[in-house]
Design a protein around this nucleic acid. Structure first.
Length: 148
DNA sequence: GCCAACGTTGGC
DNA sequence: GCCAACGTTGGC
């Protein structure tokens, strides 16, 4: 199962609103890298929900609930969207500052290219951020090479 | 097809 | 509010 990161300004669409609404169409993405990431998503893939500008932190877990399809808001027909739904909030939001301070997240898209609105997250990064966020074992997450 | 100019995003 | 980084557009 692949992992992702969805970025949103909380003043425009917050994780709290996603919880209230249950889910949403992730429309209006107009970036080809983001589009390719959405095209690669499978049902049940999970991702972080990241608040940009205000908070600057991953605040929750979301799940892909509908596959990539045309975005009605795009008249050109070039871009599409997926649906996501809220899974659970992170007990402790993981700030951009914290991600930058963690050497093993140095290559994370969020750290390297903060402007990409839909980003891939590696299994290792997923596990690290989950732990930083106060979540224990994530279902489907790769087991860390444990020193017992 | 290249590259300069411009607009937008998002951290600070 | 400012500015750097990035993507896109358009002239050549």
């Amino acid at each position: 199962m692949a992992h992702w990161l969805f970025k949103s300004e909380p003043s425009v669409f917050s994780f709290e609103k996603l919880i209230r609404d249950g889910g949403t169409e992730w429309s209006c993405v107009r970036n080809h890298s983001a589009k390719l990431n959405m095209m690669a998503m499978k049902l049940g893939d999970r991702g972080f929900f990241y608040h940009s500008n205000e908070g600057k932190a991953a605040v929750g877990i979301v799940e892909v609930s509908a596959l990539y399809r045309p975005d009605p808001s795009d008249a050109t027909g070039k871009f599409g969207m997926v649906d996501i739904r809220a899974v659970e909030p992170l007990p402790r939001p993981v700030t951009l500052e914290a991600a930058k301070a963690e050497p093993r997240l140095a290559k994370m898209a969020l750290v390297v290219n903060s402007r990409l609105s839909v980003q891939p997250v590696t299994d290792d990064e997923w596990e690290i951020v989950c732990v930083l966020g106060g979540l224990k074992a994530q279902r489907g997450a790769k087991r860390a090479k444990a020193p017992a």
